[in-house]
Amino acid sequence: MNVFRIAGDISHLASIFILIHQITITKSVQGISFKTQLLYSIVFITRYLDVTFRWVSLYIFAMKLFFIASSLYIIFLMRNRFRTSEVTKLDTFPIVYLLAGSGVLALIFTYDYSITEVLWAFSLFLESVAILPQLFMLQRTGQAKTLTTHYIFALGLYRALYIPNWFYRYFAEGRFDTLAVFTGIVQTLIYSDFFWVYYNRVMKGLNFELP
Protein backbone atom coordinates (compact mmCIF):
# COMPACT_ATOMS: atom_id res chain seq x y z
CA MET A 1 0.00 0.00 0.00
CA ASN A 2 1.32 3.42 -0.90
CA VAL A 3 0.22 6.88 0.16
CA PHE A 4 -1.63 7.63 -3.09
CA ARG A 5 -3.77 4.55 -2.83
CA ILE A 6 -4.60 5.12 0.85
CA ALA A 7 -5.42 8.78 0.15
CA GLY A 8 -7.56 7.71 -2.83
CA ASP A 9 -9.48 5.18 -0.77
CA ILE A 10 -10.02 7.70 2.05
CA SER A 11 -11.30 10.18 -0.51
CA HIS A 12 -13.67 7.53 -1.85
CA LEU A 13 -14.96 6.77 1.65
CA ALA A 14 -15.33 10.48 2.33
CA SER A 15 -17.42 10.94 -0.83
CA ILE A 16 -19.89 8.30 0.35
CA PHE A 17 -20.14 9.77 3.86
CA ILE A 18 -20.69 13.25 2.39
CA LEU A 19 -23.50 11.95 0.20
CA ILE A 20 -25.26 10.03 2.99
CA HIS A 21 -24.81 12.99 5.33
CA GLN A 22 -26.32 15.35 2.77
CA ILE A 23 -29.33 13.14 2.12
CA THR A 24 -30.05 12.51 5.80
CA ILE A 25 -29.61 16.06 7.12
CA THR A 26 -31.52 17.76 4.32
CA LYS A 27 -33.98 14.84 4.00
CA SER A 28 -33.74 15.43 0.28
CA VAL A 29 -32.15 13.87 -2.77
CA GLN A 30 -32.48 17.01 -4.84
CA GLY A 31 -29.62 17.45 -7.28
CA ILE A 32 -28.40 13.88 -6.90
CA SER A 33 -28.66 11.54 -9.85
CA PHE A 34 -30.33 8.26 -9.00
CA LYS A 35 -29.01 6.83 -12.25
CA THR A 36 -25.41 7.50 -11.25
CA GLN A 37 -26.03 5.86 -7.87
CA LEU A 38 -27.64 2.87 -9.54
CA LEU A 39 -24.61 2.51 -11.83
CA TYR A 40 -22.25 2.60 -8.84
CA SER A 41 -24.22 -0.19 -7.17
CA ILE A 42 -23.86 -2.25 -10.34
CA VAL A 43 -20.15 -1.39 -10.48
CA PHE A 44 -19.52 -2.53 -6.92
CA ILE A 45 -21.58 -5.70 -7.17
CA THR A 46 -19.99 -6.83 -10.45
CA ARG A 47 -16.45 -5.92 -9.37
CA TYR A 48 -16.54 -7.21 -5.82
CA LEU A 49 -18.20 -10.55 -6.49
CA ASP A 50 -14.75 -11.96 -5.76
CA VAL A 51 -15.13 -10.98 -2.11
CA THR A 52 -16.83 -14.37 -1.71
CA PHE A 53 -13.91 -16.46 -3.00
CA ARG A 54 -10.71 -14.40 -3.20
CA TRP A 55 -8.92 -13.26 -0.08
CA VAL A 56 -6.54 -10.34 -0.45
CA SER A 57 -6.51 -8.70 2.97
CA LEU A 58 -8.82 -7.69 5.77
CA TYR A 59 -8.62 -4.12 4.48
CA ILE A 60 -9.79 -5.06 0.98
CA PHE A 61 -12.47 -7.39 2.38
CA ALA A 62 -13.92 -4.73 4.71
CA MET A 63 -13.79 -2.01 2.05
CA LYS A 64 -15.54 -4.18 -0.54
CA LEU A 65 -18.35 -5.01 1.86
CA PHE A 66 -18.63 -1.35 2.82
CA PHE A 67 -18.86 -0.16 -0.79
CA ILE A 68 -21.49 -2.74 -1.74
CA ALA A 69 -23.57 -2.11 1.40
CA SER A 70 -23.35 1.70 1.32
CA SER A 71 -24.25 1.90 -2.36
CA LEU A 72 -27.33 -0.25 -1.78
CA TYR A 73 -28.23 1.88 1.25
CA ILE A 74 -28.03 5.05 -0.90
CA ILE A 75 -30.29 3.41 -3.49
CA PHE A 76 -32.73 2.59 -0.70
CA LEU A 77 -32.64 6.16 0.66
CA MET A 78 -33.21 7.61 -2.79
CA ARG A 79 -36.01 5.27 -3.83
CA ASN A 80 -37.88 4.66 -0.61
CA ARG A 81 -37.19 7.40 1.89
CA PHE A 82 -36.77 10.71 0.10
CA ARG A 83 -38.05 10.14 -3.39
CA THR A 84 -39.48 13.10 -5.31
CA SER A 85 -40.74 13.35 -8.85
CA GLU A 86 -38.91 16.64 -9.55
CA VAL A 87 -35.58 14.90 -9.26
CA THR A 88 -36.60 12.10 -11.62
CA LYS A 89 -37.54 14.66 -14.29
CA LEU A 90 -34.01 16.06 -14.43
CA ASP A 91 -32.34 12.67 -14.30
CA THR A 92 -32.71 11.76 -17.95
CA PHE A 93 -29.35 10.50 -19.11
CA PRO A 94 -29.84 7.34 -21.25
CA ILE A 95 -27.80 4.92 -19.14
CA VAL A 96 -28.68 1.97 -21.34
CA TYR A 97 -25.92 3.09 -23.72
CA LEU A 98 -23.39 3.20 -20.90
CA LEU A 99 -24.38 -0.30 -19.80
CA ALA A 100 -24.37 -1.70 -23.34
CA GLY A 101 -21.11 0.02 -24.29
CA SER A 102 -19.38 -1.23 -21.14
CA GLY A 103 -20.66 -4.73 -21.85
CA VAL A 104 -19.29 -4.74 -25.39
CA LEU A 105 -15.92 -3.26 -24.36
CA ALA A 106 -15.64 -5.78 -21.50
CA LEU A 107 -16.18 -8.66 -23.94
CA ILE A 108 -13.50 -7.29 -26.26
CA PHE A 109 -10.85 -6.28 -23.72
CA THR A 110 -11.28 -8.74 -20.85
CA TYR A 111 -8.07 -10.48 -19.73
CA ASP A 112 -9.79 -13.83 -19.62
CA TYR A 113 -13.11 -15.27 -20.77
CA SER A 114 -14.49 -16.27 -17.40
CA ILE A 115 -17.66 -14.82 -15.92
CA THR A 116 -15.88 -13.08 -13.06
CA GLU A 117 -13.17 -11.58 -15.29
CA VAL A 118 -15.66 -10.26 -17.85
CA LEU A 119 -17.77 -8.77 -15.04
CA TRP A 120 -14.66 -7.24 -13.52
CA ALA A 121 -13.73 -5.60 -16.85
CA PHE A 122 -17.36 -4.49 -17.27
CA SER A 123 -17.25 -2.82 -13.85
CA LEU A 124 -14.14 -0.84 -14.82
CA PHE A 125 -15.64 0.49 -18.05
CA LEU A 126 -18.92 1.25 -16.32
CA GLU A 127 -17.25 3.04 -13.42
CA SER A 128 -15.31 5.24 -15.81
CA VAL A 129 -18.59 6.70 -17.13
CA ALA A 130 -20.92 6.23 -14.13
CA ILE A 131 -20.68 9.90 -13.11
CA LEU A 132 -22.02 11.11 -16.49
CA PRO A 133 -25.74 11.15 -15.46
CA GLN A 134 -24.74 13.22 -12.42
CA LEU A 135 -22.66 15.67 -14.45
CA PHE A 136 -25.42 15.84 -17.06
CA MET A 137 -27.92 16.72 -14.32
CA LEU A 138 -25.56 19.43 -13.06
CA GLN A 139 -25.32 20.79 -16.58
CA ARG A 140 -29.11 20.95 -16.88
CA THR A 141 -29.66 22.74 -13.56
CA GLY A 142 -26.55 24.91 -13.96
CA GLN A 143 -25.90 24.96 -10.22
CA ALA A 144 -25.50 22.61 -7.29
CA LYS A 145 -25.55 22.50 -3.52
CA THR A 146 -22.09 22.80 -2.03
CA LEU A 147 -22.29 19.34 -0.45
CA THR A 148 -23.13 17.81 -3.82
CA THR A 149 -20.06 19.42 -5.35
CA HIS A 150 -17.90 18.19 -2.44
CA TYR A 151 -19.27 14.71 -3.06
CA ILE A 152 -18.44 14.79 -6.77
CA PHE A 153 -15.03 16.29 -6.06
CA ALA A 154 -14.10 13.61 -3.49
CA LEU A 155 -15.23 10.91 -5.90
CA GLY A 156 -13.17 12.36 -8.75
CA LEU A 157 -10.18 12.85 -6.49
CA TYR A 158 -10.27 9.15 -5.61
CA ARG A 159 -9.65 8.08 -9.21
CA ALA A 160 -7.19 10.90 -9.84
CA LEU A 161 -5.10 9.69 -6.85
CA TYR A 162 -5.06 6.17 -8.24
CA ILE A 163 -3.04 7.43 -11.24
CA PRO A 164 0.13 8.24 -9.21
CA ASN A 165 -0.55 4.96 -7.34
CA TRP A 166 -0.28 3.08 -10.66
CA PHE A 167 2.93 4.89 -11.54
CA TYR A 168 4.30 3.97 -8.13
CA ARG A 169 3.28 0.34 -8.48
CA TYR A 170 4.74 0.12 -11.96
CA PHE A 171 8.15 1.30 -10.76
CA ALA A 172 8.13 -0.35 -7.31
CA GLU A 173 6.46 -3.67 -8.15
CA GLY A 174 6.61 -3.92 -11.95
CA ARG A 175 2.87 -4.14 -11.91
CA PHE A 176 0.81 -2.56 -14.68
CA ASP A 177 -2.89 -3.29 -15.05
CA THR A 178 -3.67 -1.96 -18.53
CA LEU A 179 -7.46 -1.99 -18.19
CA ALA A 180 -7.52 -0.37 -14.76
CA VAL A 181 -5.08 2.33 -15.84
CA PHE A 182 -6.83 3.09 -19.13
CA THR A 183 -10.34 3.29 -17.61
CA GLY A 184 -9.00 5.22 -14.62
CA ILE A 185 -7.48 7.88 -16.85
CA VAL A 186 -10.69 8.13 -18.91
CA GLN A 187 -12.67 8.56 -15.70
CA THR A 188 -10.37 11.28 -14.43
CA LEU A 189 -10.59 13.12 -17.77
CA ILE A 190 -14.39 13.05 -17.55
CA TYR A 191 -14.06 14.94 -14.26
CA SER A 192 -11.64 17.53 -15.59
CA ASP A 193 -14.21 20.21 -16.51
CA PHE A 194 -15.92 19.72 -13.18
CA PHE A 195 -12.60 20.01 -11.30
CA TRP A 196 -11.93 23.26 -13.10
CA VAL A 197 -15.25 24.85 -12.11
CA TYR A 198 -14.96 23.45 -8.57
CA TYR A 199 -11.51 24.96 -8.19
CA ASN A 200 -12.55 28.34 -9.57
CA ARG A 201 -15.76 28.71 -7.60
CA VAL A 202 -16.29 26.35 -4.67
CA MET A 203 -12.70 26.52 -3.42
CA LYS A 204 -13.01 30.30 -3.41
CA GLY A 205 -16.18 30.15 -1.34
CA LEU A 206 -18.58 30.81 -4.19
CA ASN A 207 -21.60 28.76 -5.18
CA PHE A 208 -21.18 26.16 -7.85
CA GLU A 209 -22.67 27.73 -10.96
CA LEU A 210 -21.92 26.92 -14.53
CA PRO A 211 -21.17 29.82 -16.86
Binding site: R47, D50, I60, D112, F176, D177, A180
Partner: peptide
Protein backbone atom coordinates in the same frame (compact mmCIF):
# COMPACT_ATOMS: atom_id res chain seq x y z
CA UNK B 1 1.02 -10.39 -17.66
CA UNK B 2 -0.23 -12.91 -15.10
CA UNK B 3 -0.49 -10.52 -12.19
CA UNK B 4 -3.14 -8.55 -14.06
CA UNK B 5 -5.52 -11.38 -13.19
CA UNK B 6 -5.00 -10.84 -9.50
CA UNK B 7 -7.11 -7.85 -8.57
CA UNK B 8 -5.83 -6.44 -5.32
CA UNK B 9 -7.15 -2.89 -5.64
CA UNK B 10 -10.55 -1.38 -5.02
Amino acid sequence: NANQLFHDEL
